[in-house]
Amino acid sequence: MKSIVEIQNVTKVIKGRTIIDSLSFNVNKGEVFGFLGPNGAGKTTTIRMIVGLIGITSGDIKIQGTSIKTDFEKAVSHIGAIVENPEMYKFMSGYQNLIHYSRMSKGISKKKIDETVELVGLTDRIHDKVKTYSLGMRQRLGLAQCLLHDPKVLILDEPTNGLDPAGIREIRDHLRKLAREKDMAVIVSSHLLSEMEMMCDRIGIIQNGKLIDVQLISDFVHGKEKMYEIEVDNKDKASKLLQKTYPLIRIKQTEIGVLLPLIKEDVPETVQVLVHNEIQIYGIKEVTKTLEDRFLEVTSNKEETAHA
């Protein structure tokens, strides 16, 4: 995998406040990279720096090896982006909007515009005024706008904001298809975890302007350990016993039994220990962690270590 977007130690200071603090990560070709963080963490600021809307205090951002700082025109020509909502000229038709943007990049033919319109499925309404479009249609027009010049990197800030489930799904399918078929790198930001889980290959978590973690989505959601809940008759005895066996892990009592993190291979041994000590086991179930749990876990852990 070749990385196409390189964020190198980027810092942004606005009026003495550090908004982004030495952020570094790479995004590869053909992957959907999710940029996750709570509101105000610096997602939008980072995206604006990547597309050159705001300056970089220190560090550098390279697109296809070209710095956005020193050669803005070349670097940005590889990018197609929607920053926040896809704002269009409402008094013009969708087609006129596309003509407008096509005039600003080199070599976009009328045919290419028609193809793009077809791709996002707006052919029927493209000659209507944007005023009359629904939010979903505007989002699609926004997508058409950033696909016109065949960019290598697609950047979407909160692409599903305000869309209904059907619209979200549509955007998701589009993005996955583009990454796969056109080998584009797609960067998406969001604070909605469930959405990220379905859309992205990798995610970077940002909090208070710092990058906390970058993980493959599969690793991130599942981790190596899983949580198991064992339903037993004597909760106190069971938890004491297990604590003796695994002194390092944290064991919690639930209403029906005990909850503890285990790797798969340790499950039989655990059962044996309990059975040998005459504890009745009624059931064992794997409790899957959602992205949300993981996210809160990761962000609060890091905060603790930061405060310690």
Binding site: L53, V76, E84, K90, M104, S105
Partner: peptide
């Protein structure tokens, strides 16, 4: 005001 400045300034034009 329209917010279109964000799409206008991310074109390969100074």
């Amino acid at each position: 005001n329209w917010g279109t400045i964000k799409l206008l300034l991310i074109r390969p034009i100074k």
